[in-house]
């Protein structure tokens, strides 16, 4: 059953990543250089929709809280984020979209994956030094959500109800997606407007 779900949800994820333009490095580059925020609006809306449905579903008892999986917070999360961001901007790929792009026939994405496998191996080899440095030690409570979610094993950073906050923040994400302009900079000359 798990394998069937992996195939169905995975295939849907890959197809949608392609259709929204996330597996296309042109759109990633235009988003990250703040020229064209169409993709940012899409992703922010998606996070909002996901959040409202998940936390709303939890409040109605339709979604199992135990399916949540919250990652730990530590200084390395920020450092790793910086590294990923730099490589993401330069190449136009992140781990998921790089795999999608390679499957779509982009040869440069095959080089991205090869580099990625080597980068992951390099981390595996250097992991003991990071561990010893203390930069992987929990900060802000480690595996925490902004508010404590009823029934979840994670602590809340703030003394608010986590599911109510989740729905509210989800609504904020939706709102941000709506008000964010498609363009912040760039002249737009010679560029076709995206599908509307």
């Amino acid at each position: 059953m798990q394998i069937i779900l992996a195939i169905v949800i995975g295939a849907a994820f890959g197809a949608v990543l392609d259709r929204v333009g996330a597996a296309n490095p042109n759109w990633i580059g235009k988003m990250l250089s703040l020229k064209h925020l169409h993709l940012a609006k899409t992703i922010i809306l998606a996070i909002g929709v996901g959040s409202v449905l998940m936390f709303g579903g939890q409040m109605l008892g339709l979604v199992e809280v135990g399916h949540m999986s919250v990652k730990a917070a530590y200084v390395g999360v920020f450092i790793g984020g910086l590294l990923l961001g730099a490589g993401w901007a330069a190449s136009g790929y992140c781990p998921g979209t790089g795999v999608c792009a390679a499957a779509s026939g982009r040869k440069d994405a095959l080089f991205f994956i090869a580099g990625g496998l080597l980068g992951a191996a390099a981390y595996m080899a250097t992991y003991p030094s990071w561990k010893a440095s203390g930069l992987l030690d929990d900060i802000a409570g480690g595996k925490v959500t902004l508010g404590a979610v009823p029934g979840a094993s994670y602590d809340g950073l703030f003394a608010v109800s986590g599911d109510v906050l989740g729905v509210a923040l989800g609504a904020v994400f939706v709102l941000v997606a709506i008000v964010l302009p498609e363009r912040l900079s760039g002249d737009g000359a010679g560029v076709e407007t995206p599908a509307e």
């Binding site: 730990a72 790793g80 910086l82 590294l83 730099a86 790929y93 781990p95 080597l118 980068g119 992951a120």
Partner: peptide
């Protein structure tokens, strides 16, 4: 880029 992205992703978890 792939090297830096995956090294960073694994460091970040």
């Amino acid at each position: 880029g792939g090297f830096v992205v995956l090294y960073g992703a694994r460091l970040a978890g």
